[in-house]
């Protein structure tokens, strides 16, 4: 029995360059966003039009991706659904960033009391998983892209507040912040030069991580019948609809599933790369310092 008890040396990715995977993911996301922008122009059919003479049709020349159980063109629904899916995903991440990061920062800047109050309250409801909170909020706020984005944003906001707090305290404890104070630098100077740039990196990274989660959570909600309204289809809703007729129209489910997988994977790859780029220790790791003369 021989256990070497050592891991293979970590391949340190060269920061600064763009790895191929990240470039590919970026290109994919750009393509999907572009598709969302021009979807109504290029979609061959109205995504809501039901062709009752062509139910559950397999892909052919007229319907490249086939039709669903009530005769709607899958390709058109997929293209138009891109827009709603992205709106809700980006909207949710933006709302979470604004509410979680914004409130967190205000509470931190105002002092210990507000910090204790806000984070005490967040701590109390932290045990609710985002999916459950989002589900409740959607029930309370109603269907549609706007309410769903707000529900997702509220559900993921605590993540941003915690990230803001961690980065804030890490920065405030740095010797360079202390030094700035001894130079006579006021709170605004310290915030502007030292704290906010480092905080921004942490928050952007968190947004990149939360964005694909918002999209998945929205799909799950739609899949459970709680997401967007029926007249603005999302990919999740397409999966849900098609799952009922999976035996006779399997093609209708494959396309939206692949779309969701490609989008979330691309966003995750980008998020992972951002996390590495904004790593506060990256500089120190990238190049070795000079040897003492």
């Amino acid at each position: 029995m021989s256990l070497a008890l050592s891991s293979a040396p970590l391949r340190e990715k060269r920061a600064g360059r763009w790895p191929v995977a990240v470039l590919a993911a970026g290109a994919t996301v750009v393509a999907i966003v572009a598709m969302a922008a021009i979807a109504p122009l290029v979609a061959p059919y109205d995504p809501l039009d039901q062709d009752l003479l062509a139910l559950n049709q397999a892909p052919d020349a007229a319907h490249w991706l086939g039709t669903d159980h009530i005769g709607r063109d899958v390709l058109s629904r997929l293209l138009v659904g891109t827009r709603t899916t992205l709106t809700i995903g980006f909207g949710g991440a933006a709302v979470a960033l604004a509410i979680g990061g914004g409130l967190g920062l205000v509470a931190l800047a105002l002092g210990r009391l507000t910090e204790t109050l806000l984070f005490g309250a967040v701590d109390l409801i932290r045990a609710i998983p985002p999916i459950l909170l989002a589900l409740l909020l959607v029930v309370a706020l109603g269907a549609g892209a706007g309410p769903v984005a707000i529900a997702l944003g509220l559900s993921y906001a605590p993540f941003f507040a915690y990230v803001a707090r961690a980065a804030w305290h890490r920065e405030m404890a740095q010797d360079y912040v202390t030094a700035a104070r001894t130079f006579g630098g006021g709170p605004l100077h310290v915030l502007r030069l030292h704290v906010l740039p480092n905080l921004a990196g942490a928050l952007i990274t968190q947004a990149a991580i939360v964005l694909p989660r918002c999209i998945v959570t929205e799909s799950v909600l739609s899949f459970l019948g709680l997401g967007s309204s029926p007249d603005a289809p999302t990919w999740g809703r397409m999966v849900a609809d098609a799952s009922r007729t999976i035996e006779i129209a399997p093609h209708a489910i494959v396309a939206p599933v692949i779309a969701i997988v490609v989008l979330t994977t691309s966003l995750s790859v980008i998020g992972d790369d951002l996390r590495r780029r904004f790593d506060p220790l990256r500089h120190a790791r990238a190049t070795p310092p000079e040897v003492e003369p």
Binding site: P212, S219, V220, S243, I246, P250, I260, T264, T265, S268
Partner: peptide, 22 residues
């Protein structure tokens, strides 16, 4: 990467498709 890329409900749907239907 599997768990990041494939939301469970998508895997579930595809699973039913493959195991049960095909």
């Amino acid at each position: 990467i599997w768990s990041i890329a494939f939301p469970t409900f998508c895997v579930g749907v595809l699973g039913i498709l493959i195991v049960s239907v095909w």
